[in-house]
Amino acid sequence: MKILKWFFALLILVVIVAGAIAWTLPADVAYRYVASQLGPVSLVGVRGTVWQGHADGVSVFGRDLGELDWQVEKAPLFARRLHADLRIRGADIDTSGLIERAADGRLTAHDVRFRVPASMLAPVLDVPSLKLLGTITGSFAKVSFQDGVVSDANGTALWSDAGVSGTAEARFSDILAEFASKPDGSIGGTVADDGKGNLEVSGHFTIAATGFQAEAFLAARNDDARVREALRYVGEPQADGSSHLLIDGKLFKLF
């Protein structure tokens, strides 16, 4: 009987110690165990705990994005659910959102907000002599992922202080994109200018796990000479002086 009492006492002690360790587990220790499973994502300068911590740097495919802060709620874990508040802040990047992982593996992001330089999208155009100017800000109200399929996604993005530079430089009015998930698991959207500047934009795009496709017609409003010159280096020139832009590529080009 005494042996049984000692056994239960020892078991309770182990549970308490294990719980205390898990409750205060240093983030750098946990990262060493999971780093090999994060694929193209890597962290440096990790500190804090697994529940609330900070990384001096986070990179994806070798591209530095900035600092990472996170806070994980403990209570949902007892129901096999994960609730985390993440934020990435860099010199010109600011992204934040709430991440939830359900017991069935579904991953959902809420209230995602982002700010990135327009130059980050330049690789998808594949025009080395052309630089994109301005800033892109936007938000996802909600987006869910499960088994590689996207659902419940909807949001907007705004390209402000828009412009291009290279052989010629031109500034445009703001350009707005609206997007939402489609039944096949891809994301589709439209893009258009606000009608106040000298670049007229009208187009649509689709983003899927295998890549993305976009089509747009660009034209110089008010016969703006700088815009007409810039359009010579973007897309396929049309007889009326506009440009037909087709993009078909892979998302990894962004990194």
Rank of each mutant, 00 (worst) to 15 (best):
I3P: 03
G62I: 07
A84Y: 01
T49Q: 08
N222S: 11
W70T: 00
I207T: 12
A9P: 01
G155T: 01
I136H: 01
D85G: 07
S173K: 06
A84N: 04
A102E: 10
T190I: 10
L107V: 15
S181I: 08
F61A: 10
S59K: 04
F205T: 00
L98V: 14
V72C: 01
G66L: 02
D193K: 02
F172S: 00
A27Q: 02
V127D: 08
P128S: 03
G134T: 08
V150F: 02
F205D: 02
G195E: 11
F145R: 06
D85H: 14
A208D: 05
G148D: 10
N198S: 10
D94A: 09
A216Y: 00
S151P: 06
T49M: 09
A141G: 15
V34F: 13
A102V: 05
F7M: 10
Q71N: 11
L251S: 09
P76Y: 04
G19F: 05
A168M: 12
I3R: 15
G45P: 09
L82D: 02
F179W: 04
D223C: 04
V164D: 00
F179G: 01
G66W: 01
T108Q: 13
G148H: 07
V17I: 14
H110N: 15
G19C: 05
L246A: 12
V72M: 04
V191K: 01
R228C: 01
A209I: 06
I12V: 11
D126I: 12
D147R: 14
A225Q: 14
M1V: 06
A55Q: 03
V143S: 06
H204D: 10
G97P: 06
I187H: 04
A170I: 00
G105L: 05
E100W: 11
R32G: 15
V50S: 01
Y31I: 09
F252Q: 13
D56F: 09
Q71A: 09
A102G: 11
E100D: 15
P128N: 08
G90C: 06
L121E: 03
R171D: 05
A180K: 07
V116M: 14
G105Q: 07
V41D: 07
S173G: 13
I12M: 11
W23Y: 14
E73P: 02
G185V: 02
A103R: 11
F255S: 14
S173N: 12
H83E: 10
R89K: 15
G211K: 00
G163L: 02
M1H: 09
V116L: 15
V72I: 09
D147Y: 11
M1I: 06
F78P: 02
V164Q: 02
P26R: 05
A20R: 05
H110M: 13
A122M: 04
L254A: 13
E229Y: 03
S96R: 13
L251P: 08
G45C: 12
N222E: 05
I136L: 08
L218D: 00
R221T: 01
L13P: 07
P117R: 05
L251F: 09
V34T: 12
V234S: 02
S139M: 10
H244D: 07
V127H: 07
E73G: 04
V127I: 14
S186Q: 03
D193F: 03
V15S: 11
I16G: 10
A118E: 03
A122K: 04
T135H: 12
K5V: 08
A219V: 02
I93Y: 03
L176P: 00
S202E: 11
G66R: 00
F252L: 13
G62L: 08
S119D: 14
